[in-house]
């Protein structure tokens, strides 16, 4: 029995009829055409599909579309400003070569953005721990960590002067 889901995606209202078994990531990719969110596994372990649901990072392959009724969703497409200026995290990934093939990147970026929201000045260990749920097959993580730390450096509220 199809169900209508109404939610906000990247600041805009969206409403679609879906089957209950439709995953949130399928709603985003197949129904709304937002293919920046990737699917890299069947087991909810890779993190390619990470988005923000009501302000917190989650794996959109482990949430049903119907569970997002009334929710606010932010995807990688919603990060840059409308004039195309990259979000500081996206800019840092580009600057520090935090990607090679780019498959894991949307999930990495969304996860890292959530980290800096919780913890604006993480240590390297905290960044590595936080990205536990995001797998990358290319970079060896080194430049991803560098990018996240550089973004924190550039955007964190200045530590109290003195």
């Amino acid at each position: 029995m199809p169900i209508t889901v109404s939610l906000t995606v990247n600041g805009k209202p969206a409403s679609r009829e879906v089957e209950p078994r439709t995953l949130l990531v399928e709603l985003l990719r197949d129904h709304l055409g937002l293919t920046g969110t990737h699917v890299g596994c069947d087991t909810s372990q890779c993190g390619a599909c990470v988005i923000h649901l009501n302000g917190r990072s989650v794996k959109s392959c482990a949430v049903l579309a119907v569970q997002a009724e009334g929710a606010s969703v932010l995807t990688i497409e919603g990060l840059a400003t409308p004039d195309g200026t990259l979000h500081p995290m996206q800019a840092a990934f580009r600057e520090h070569h935090g990607l090679q093939c780019g498959f894991c990147t949307p999930g990495m970026v969304m996860s890292a953005v959530d980290l800096l929201k919780q913890n604006p000045r993480p240590s390297e260990t905290e960044v590595r721990d936080w990205l536990e749920g995001n797998l990358c097959r290319c970079t060896g993580y080194q430049n991803i960590i560098k990018a996240v730390l550089a973004c924190a450096e550039a955007t964190a509220p200045a530590a109290s002067a003195g």
Partner: peptide, 9 residues
């Protein structure tokens, strides 16, 4: 437990 995204749900 798991990772931050698993812990959020």
């Amino acid at each position: 437990i798991g990772d931050p995204q698993v812990r959020n749900r």
